[in-house]
Amino acid sequence: MKGTYLGEFQEIVLLTILVLDENAYGITIQDEIAKRTGREVSRGALHTALTRLNEKGFISSEYGGATAERGGRRKRYYQVTNLGKNALQEAKSVRDDLWNSVPKVTLQRS
């Protein structure tokens, strides 16, 4: 289905938001991805992904928690919507399905 397709990076972003639970906003997502995957993600790339996800309805966001460190500006916290969770599940099940269909022998490294 066009429009609900989940790209690899978008999937990582979604998962990261889930991992971070209540504390998912720009910087923490960026840091978490860096920590877990070793990928330095630029802010632009991240926000492109976030915008796309938002358009697809996979995430929602709300403002909260201004700190002086941010020049008094509020954070935008992200949550994964049910739609997003479904998409993640679906992606996972597609993969699992594929994994299960691979004959064991082929996986052994020659």
Binding site: Y25, G26, I27, R43, H47, Y63, A66, T67, E69, R70, G71, R73, R74, K75, R76
Partner: peptide, 15 residues
């Protein structure tokens, strides 16, 4: 609508 959190993020990083 993007400005507030982006500038906040960047500035946090900066600090």
């Amino acid at each position: 609508d993007l400005y507030e959190d982006i500038s906040g993020d960047i500035e946090e990083d900066f600090n």
